[in-house]
């Protein structure tokens, strides 16, 4: 649901970047993590960048203990950091065409 709606919007708004904020989540199990990873990969195929932001410290450690590391997916501390990261990344991409 979320996945397809999001991917559709990326095309509709010609988005260059997507931020997924998980601050409110107290638990991220393997299913949720896989969904996040899939979203990131699909969005990359659509030509945009994804950043996961707001992973709580406890959640982060619980995830790595389950062996979930969200490899090749960008992460940032919070929304602000995520925006800064995308700004930098997209500017860089524009500067070196």
């Amino acid at each position: 649901m979320l996945q397809s709606a999001l991917v559709e919007k990326v095309g509709k708004f010609r988005s260059r970047g997507v931020i997924v904020d998980v601050t409110a989540l107290d638990v991220l199990d393997s299913f949720a993590s896989r969904t996040l990873r899939d979203i990131a990969h699909i969005i990359r195929l659509r030509g945009a960048e994804t950043v996961i932001v707001g992973v709580q410290p406890e959640v982060a450690f619980a995830m790595v203990q389950l062996g979930i590391t969200l490899e090749k997916v960008s992460t940032a501390l919070d929304l602000e950091e995520g925006l800064a990261y995308l700004d930098q990344k997209l500017q860089h991409a524009r500067a070196t065409p």
Partner: peptide
């Protein structure tokens, strides 16, 4: 620990 830190950005 290294991986968890990365998840926090």
């Amino acid at each position: 620990t290294v991986e968890a830190s990365r998840l926090l950005g």
